[in-house]
């Protein structure tokens, strides 16, 4: 029905504008704000109606390119909250008001989540050690900057060609006085013996305890495992997603807008050559030692526990 889809598209538009407005806060915060907005703007009068609105907004956001994969669990969080507060026999307006209030609070705390993560993850960086990372993750940078306040250590960044997110990480760390070495993605195995630990961010943390992140993360995790170096993930809990892929082929479809690294400056691939450009890969939980989240330091099995509690 037209009214519903209008609301859904409004949600999508809200997300894009929130994201543009405050890129530092990140896509999760923008998504939360967008969901809250959709509640504010809805004309539902029942609990079921509210839940429907949320679900539709969530679906609309998920269909956006480059939307965070945790939209579904964020929606679920909101729906759960509605159900729980409804059990306390409050009236509808009360619930709605509370939901909006809490949604705005959550958007704020998501930003604080990063400093929490930095605080609990910083002690794991050894003084005099070398940290290896890939691309750019706000949580990772926050963690390393927090650790740099009290210890001397150095960082090796894998560039993540061709977008070169690694350069952003390198710049931010160098500004804070942390010695940074930039290496090509292919040199990860070569430098791994020097490293004391590997730290990456995540686009989504999954029910299995594994993570989905930019292509190259799985490779780095395998190399770290072969060299017996610990592989850590830093991520906010709002990125927990209820997915359980069995292999790389099980990941949700995602077409990335970036260039194909193998064809930079070479024009389009000539037939019969096929060019594959996976934007994300899945790292299974047995390669992840610990996850630093705002819920605390979690083992991969604890992550699935949290998700089970949420969805069951």
């Amino acid at each position: 029905m037209p009214a519903v889809s209008k609301a859904a598209s409004k949600a999508a538009a809200a997300y894009t504008s929130f994201l543009a407005e405050d890129p530092v806060a990140g896509p999760s915060a923008a998504a939360i704000k967008a969901l809250t907005e959709s509640i504010k703007g809805s004309s539902a009068t029942t609990i079921m109606g509210l839940s429907e609105v949320l679900r539709e907004a969530g679906a609309a956001l998920s269909s956006l390119r480059d939307a965070p994969m945790s939209i579904a669990s964020l929606c679920e969080l909101f729906v759960r909250f509605i159900t729980r507060t409804a059990l306390e026999a409050r009236d509808f307006d009360d619930i709605r008001r509370l939901l909006i209030e809490r949604g705005e609070m959550l958007a704020r705390t998501t930003i604080e989540a990063r400093s929490k993560i930095a605080k609990i993850g910083a002690p794991f960086v050894d003084a005099g050690g070398v940290v290896l990372t890939l691309g750019y993750s706000r949580c990772v940078v926050a963690l390393l900057l927090a650790a740099a306040k009290t210890k001397h250590f150095s960082v090796i960044v894998a560039e993540s060609h061709p977008q070169g997110d690694g350069h952003t990480t390198a710049q931010q760390l160098a500004q804070a006085g942390v010695p940074v070495t930039m290496v090509e993605d292919a040199a990860v195995a070569y430098v791994m013996t020097r490293c004391q630990m590997v730290l990456c961010g995540a686009e989504a943390v999954l029910e299995s305890g594994g993570v989905i992140n930019k292509t190259g993360t799985y490779q780095m995790a395998i190399v770290a495992h072969a060299f017996k170096k610990p592989f850590y993930i830093a991520s906010e809990s709002t990125k927990f997603a209820r997915l359980f892929p069995l292999s790389q082929n099980d990941l949700p479809e995602h077409e990335s807008a970036r260039e194909h690294a193998a064809f930079v400056g070479r024009g389009p691939p000539p037939p019969p050559l096929i060019a594959e450009k996976p934007s994300r890969d899945y790292t299974p939980p047995n390669y992840v030692q610990l996850l630093f989240t705002d819920l605390g330091v979690l083992t991969p099995s604890a992550v699935s526990d949290e998700l089970i509690k949420l969805f069951d």
């Binding site: 969080l77 729980r84 306390e88 949604g103 959550l106 819920l295 949290e306 998700l307 509690k309 949420l310």
Partner: peptide, 13 residues
């Protein structure tokens, strides 16, 4: 309403 030992996904809101 819910008592869990510490922060949890469910109690985020």
């Amino acid at each position: 309403t819910v008592h869990v030992a510490g922060p949890s996904l469910m109690s985020l809101l």
